[in-house]
Design a protein around this nucleic acid. Structure first.
Lengths: 341, 341
DNA sequence: TTGAAAGCGCTAACAC
DNA sequence: GTGTTAGCGCTTTCAA
């Protein structure tokens, strides 16, 4: 690699002048500047961000931890972060945690060793040990994405309770009064919130909450699939289902397939989170869609703001999801979307 | 951050000794070692990879460029790279190129500024300017993923011609003799190869290649959707379709939906590349599935090998895709998979 | 078995 | 308007 010293030699100036030409950090006589720029060009000089970071103690790099980059929603968040990072001249380091608190901590430590300026945690494990340490004000700037925690932290998520209530309301408005929720692991805060939306919708409609209509403590697609089979069989089955995440929806679809059941004919379905390419496939599932790309963008912007102003007050941003009205909720075909989009 | 010098002070040794204790780079007397380790622990020392990289001129970081992280197949590749990188103690920088040669070059330059040890290009733009420069032996180690180029480079891809031929053979074996291919942009090498597989299958079956059965020069899902409508209308329509990528398949599904057509009833369909969660949805599309995670793993391993041995001979790895036999190809239900899986 | 010190490439304080 | 130089935190050579 060609260094500043080489350029300085070629242009007959000091390294200081070269540095100032490159960074525009102090006035340089026109003729000198041109000479330096010519030398820079001729040599194909590229700055060494390592040395620069060393000296300035800022790497202009952010670390992003996601639980699973193969899930489209995380790909979208990554995309959003990457876009804003690039615009601000930041590089992005990425690590995958497999939703495991241990690996997540590991990744954070590695990021710190690399002296990233800040960290974005897309879907922090809810059981993250050493979480308190992150709250220490002298710790590295941190933004939480998707799964939120303390309001003392910068964080970006989607609205959950309201939208979930709204799609359950929609089912109720369609005449369903026996609605089950496949809620997933209720110790996860976001899933807990989605359940809360369901609860509120039933409450508002004076429908009693029945524990045999709440499928919780299921984590994987496979578990959901297995758990749903007995529930969907027989005449006692619920007439409508609400699902709380992509994987859960996938598991439910698996169970429906196993039983050769159709939606909305045999059971109505609405889903929080959408499966990719969902618009092309049957069943066409009425869904709440999180604006994942924008969430990533906001997270990066929040981090940049914090880097510029370390003492800024912590901010929590909740973005509105979109409602996509399709057929699985059992509305008459061609009916206008009750969601106003 | 606590520095080595602090540890050296605390343990009453020189920084050299601290360094050697941490890295195990020279024998240290047991008692000294214990004292240093105690001090390390007490202070919660974490090494500074920046300073280390500065001195050793290796960052133990790799750069990955993908064209679009929201596409599951790239998420999978990223996952594979991340896993192997972590196992080898490497950090991963990620940039998204939007399949644009300009942004791709930009990302590569930024990576070089950050002095990454090597770069993985997942789906290099086929029009990448300055490509020759990468072939220069003094350039930074590089591995191509998915879209391959010169055999003088390390690269990892999936087999294409053979598998494509095989699924077209499968259609032919099912009695279809009027098969169209939705080939996408044939200036993209991987898509060109897939087309070649189609051509070979027709050739082997003595079916003439008709230019009105080749839909090329379509790039986006939207373009495919629009282009397919006239082709699918009327009685002259092909009886079977082969699609060359996820986006193309999505566009075809859109067109089928627009025309209220079903597969395999109105037209049979097989797809190269699979849409995520495809197993849960109708139509259930017979597909060739690339082992994207393993491709990512191999790419990282190839890069590590090159870093250890810069003079190793360039290697091209082609992984076998899986065949997933479903209903869209029009085989009788319950027929055994002709693919032997 | 250990320590002193040079130096990786840059930025910025200070001097002229 | 420009140059000299200390120093960021580490690794590693040389010397003891």
């Amino acid at each position: 690699m060609v260094r500043m010293a080489d350029i300085a030699n070629a242009a007959n100036v000091s390294v200081a002048t070269v540095s100032h030409v490159i960074n525009g950090t102090r006035p340089v006589k026109e003729s000198t500047r041109l000479r330096v720029e010519a030398a820079l060009d001729a040599a194909g000089y590229r700055r060494d961000r390592l040395a620069r970071a060393m000296r300035r103690s800022t790497t202009e790099t952010v670390g992003v931890v996601v639980s699973d980059p193969t899930q489209p929603v995380f790909g979208q968040m990554i995309q959003g972060v990457a876009k804003e990072a690039r615009a601000a001249g930041y590089a992005m380091m990425l690590a995958s945690s497999a939703d495991d608190g241990q690996q997540e901590l590991e990744a954070i430590k590695t990021f710190k060793e690399h002296r990233v300026d800040g960290i974005i945690l897309a879907e922090v494990s809810h059981d993250l040990a050493g979480f308190d340490e992150m709250l220490r004000p002298d710790s590295i700037p941190l933004v939480l994405l998707d799964r939120l925690a303390s309001r003392r932290l910068d964080q970006v998520g989607a609205e959950t309770v309201g939208p979930m209530k709204r799609i359950v309301d929609h089912l109720i408005g369609n005449g369903y009064d026996d609605i089950a929720i496949v809620a997933g692991d209720l110790s996860v805060p976001t899933l807990q919130e989605r359940f809360e939306g369901y609860r509120q919708a039933l409450d508002a409609a004076d429908i009693p909450l029945r524990s045999d209509r709440v499928v919780d403590d299921v984590r994987t697609e496979r578990e959901v699939r297995a758990a749903m089979r007995p529930i969907l069989q027989g005449n006692e089955r619920p007439r409508a289902l609400v699902t709380s995440s992509t994987n859960i929806t996938a598991g439910v679809l698996g169970a429906l397939h196993d039983l050769d059941m159709r939606t909305p004919r045999d059971v109505a379905l609405v889903s929080f989170d959408e499966l990719p390419y969902a618009e092309h496939f049957a069943p066409r599932i009425t869904s709440v869609v999180q604006p994942a790309v924008q969430m990533g963008e906001h997270a990066m912007r929040l981090l940049l703001r914090r880097l510029r102003n370390p003492d800024a007050q912590a901010r929590t941003i909740r973005l509105k999801p979109r409602f996509v009205h399709r057929q699985s909720c059992g509305c008459p075909a061609g009916a206008p979307s009750p969601f106003g989009d």
